[in-house]
Design a protein around this nucleic acid. Sequence first.
DNA 1: CTCAATTTGTTCGTATGTATG
DNA 2: ACATACATACGAACAAATTGA
Lengths: 268, 268
Amino acid sequence: MSKLLKSYDRSRIPLYIQVASVMRQRIQSGQWAPGQRISTLEELEREFQVARVTVRQAIGVLQDDGLLHAQQGRGTYVSDLTPSRHWFKLETTWDELIESIRDNVPQHISLEENVAAPALQANDGKAADAYVLLRSVQYRDNEPYSLVNLHLARYIFDLNPKLFMRAPALSTIAGLSQVKVAYAHQTLVIGSADPETADRMMVAIGAPTAECHCVVIDDTGTAIYVADIIYRSDCIKLQIDLLGNAPTPAARMAPTEKAPKRPKAKQA
Amino acid sequence: MSKLLKSYDRSRIPLYIQVASVMRQRIQSGQWAPGQRISTLEELEREFQVARVTVRQAIGVLQDDGLLHAQQGRGTYVSDLTPSRHWFKLETTWDELIESIRDNVPQHISLEENVAAPALQANDGKAADAYVLLRSVQYRDNEPYSLVNLHLARYIFDLNPKLFMRAPALSTIAGLSQVKVAYAHQTLVIGSADPETADRMMVAIGAPTAECHCVVIDDTGTAIYVADIIYRSDCIKLQIDLLGNAPTPAARMAPTEKAPKRPKAKQA
DNA sequence: CTCAATTTGTTCGTATGTATG
DNA sequence: ACATACATACGAACAAATTGA
């Protein structure tokens, strides 16, 4: 261990992983541009206060990921085509949210008919008499990006069970004229993947996740929709318009007159 | 390595750390309640498909953190007083944001007078002629929770340099009658701590962070305030009101007399 | 009180991974 | 590339504390 292990030992994570993590960040943020030659091993040794071999291990990790390639006698270069992270935009207003998920096709894992009420937080309203639990995985480009645990009030689900199994529940609710949505909110915290999540999201156990708790409350103050959604952290981006007058195109042009548009299937 | 290394080897992070990470999550989420006896070593071995010693190492980590205590012959228990995470609420509307940071005292690191323009993203407007760079750390209960890199348009800073050094820049801008705020937005992604961030935030290198990019654009389309803020991930909570009619108490009951009256745009 | 069942604690041997100089 | 030291992980066996019958 180096003499300057100051902030390293706050973590029990292998040094070369930590170094690789920082270098990955620099590449993804553009601080190290595609095609650019990065610092020499000696410079990196000094910067990170680690042994030469440790730096090389870190570089090895990023080479495996295709982000770097080292060449003897020349130096180490950032790959020309660093795959830009494809951000999945998490919308922050009802209309945009409905619009953005309209064509999603949930890949259902299970449907449990008689389940306990979901864990409700402050301002989540009161629990309905009965819930069904819908569990699903969301895909994009055949890659899983979120795991959904949805508690749906039983009587809401019964209004159109088939549609709830086929289309995003939120869109379906928005299209049900019998349902009066009074409040809707979500909270987001950063967590880490448990074994099941890790398995389904194809990430490591303990990898960072965004945990979203989304609740819809009807005009009787009942929480009719309680979704706990776990997103992979590496594909999530929130965009928050602080003044509510964003000049973005589209977004809310069409008043969601009608129900979900019969989602077209994307993946198998 | 066990034969069932299925999702483990997606990460090169030590197994016992991964296991500890999952158990910590269960405690913090309340799935393992305070005072409760957790599964036996044998059960945990089976669940995580790891050796006994590995489970014990994970438990050791959480014992060091004061979250668990094991007793020979009895079992392993969750501590009675698991310190509930005190969330720092990240507001999502202009008025609430201003209000929430009003009394913050930034702990300045540096002020650079002649710096290059900040990296601007889509919809961030055009760059000002000159910027100053203000770097600071935010504290709460003497614990650092965020690192701020603020690019402030030079001419804005010059309007009241002393105040900008003393109070949160956003509040200051909101109180400047000369400044017309046209748009304001922020984006949030999940990242990982580089060495400097790790050092200042007192977390491990590579620990997950919330990276917030907050931009204020004036009526000439110039980005006058560009803040890149890195939060510790374990103290951040976003609360998003999807319909904009949240029945939350307080928050805005007191008509913040001095606050900016200008931007009041809000959808019904 | 003793016994047996349960549960955590300890140790050994081995193999591989991590980090230094 | 090498020699060294220490960390990680496995499986298995055994020891020690607790509990309740």
